[in-house]
């Protein structure tokens, strides 16, 4: 019976943990957008503006990008 109980507690705790994490994520999403740190909605444009030569929505600084190009 020991393992059954353990199983029960484990699933209960993990469920709580995941639920907290999920809610934390919701709070984080909206807060960081309100504070102006991030704009999630602009990521939606990745699908619309997807030509190979169009400017990435989110790229690291151009210099390191170029370095990577050369290294290939």
């Amino acid at each position: 019976m020991g393992i059954r109980e353990l199983q029960g507690y484990a699933s209960f705790l993990m469920t709580i943990l995941f639920v907290v994490a999920l809610y934390g994520y919701i709070v984080y999403l909206y807060r960081s957008e309100k504070k102006g740190e991030k704009d999630y909605e602009k990521f939606g444009n990745i699908a619309l503006d997807d030509e190979i030569d169009s400017t990435p929505i989110n790229s690291s600084d151009p210099i390191s990008d170029e370095k990577k190009e050369r290294n290939k």
Partner: peptide, 12 residues
């Protein structure tokens, strides 16, 4: 030609 209504909702 329409971006996803809510990108945040899609993540959630």
């Amino acid at each position: 030609g329409q971006a996803v209504y809510s990108y945040k909702l899609s993540l959630l």
